[in-house]
Amino acid sequence: MTVPVRRPARASAGAAVALLAALALFPVVGPAFAVYVLALILVTGLLALSLNLVLGYGGLYQFHHAVFYGVGAYTLAVAVTRGGWPAWLGFLAGPLAAALAGLLIGWFCVRLTRLYFGMLQISLGSLLWIVVLRWYPVTGGDNGIHDIPLPAVLQSVVGAYYLILAVVALSAGVLYLIVRSPFGITLQAIRDNAQRCQTVGVDVRAHQIGAIVIAAFFAGTAGVLYVALERSVFPNLLFWVLSLEIFVMCLLGGWFTFAGPMLGAALMVALRTVIGRYTDLWTMFVGIILILLIFFMPEGVAGTALARLRARGAGAGGRG
């Protein structure tokens, strides 16, 4: 029996390899500041990709994703500066601590649905944020922790850039595999119809917790990469405003596509850098763009482009 099975598009695999090669070569030709911005885009992009696993694919109101980013970053910072751990151990501990936080918060949140899920997550996340903000001896309170000593390789922007590129590429690959795996398909089915999933034998809550833990792990990974780039942490890394900004990135790029959130992060970071040169009122521009998107492009840039492509190739059947 022959079944028309969806295959990963060769073209997009080729594009991914070409993009990766271009990114690897960029520091050779690009100015240092551009390398730094690109590194920031990759870190933020991984953060947005990880949110989208639970948001776009899981349909969960993950309102406080930045918490896991912050937990990853602070774990590394505290382990190295207060605990005297070797940096590599801190880099491993960050994502794991974030995953643990994801397990705890997720375990409570999946009992609730939609807006209540989101609100419980905000309260649990804000609790962590307040603790970080007030626990001066460990977290440095509202000053944060600066000049975190890291290995010499990471002292240069280019060194940090290559670490970030390697880890982000690897993480994005793993996330892509997960989205296409039985777990990923089941997660999307839960998003579409959780009740139906229960009645075909899927343990919905277990899958949702699993997705939150995985997303938290990769958010924590982005967090330690942020420290590698900036060598400092501060409480705003787990403030709710950042959580909503990641949301905006997913919307901007398109949360029903895999790479959309990365694109959204790139646009946001680039906008902030460019507009920030001329005015400190850049959040107003983000607000205006966001509102325009909601009115005219609710599927995001990538989502809208994809829809156009599909409309053009209508009749071919299936989806991309």
Partner: peptide
């Protein structure tokens, strides 16, 4: 939520 967040930014 995102819309009202946009207004907040503005």
């Amino acid at each position: 939520i995102l819309f009202t967040f946009g207004v907040m930014l503005i």
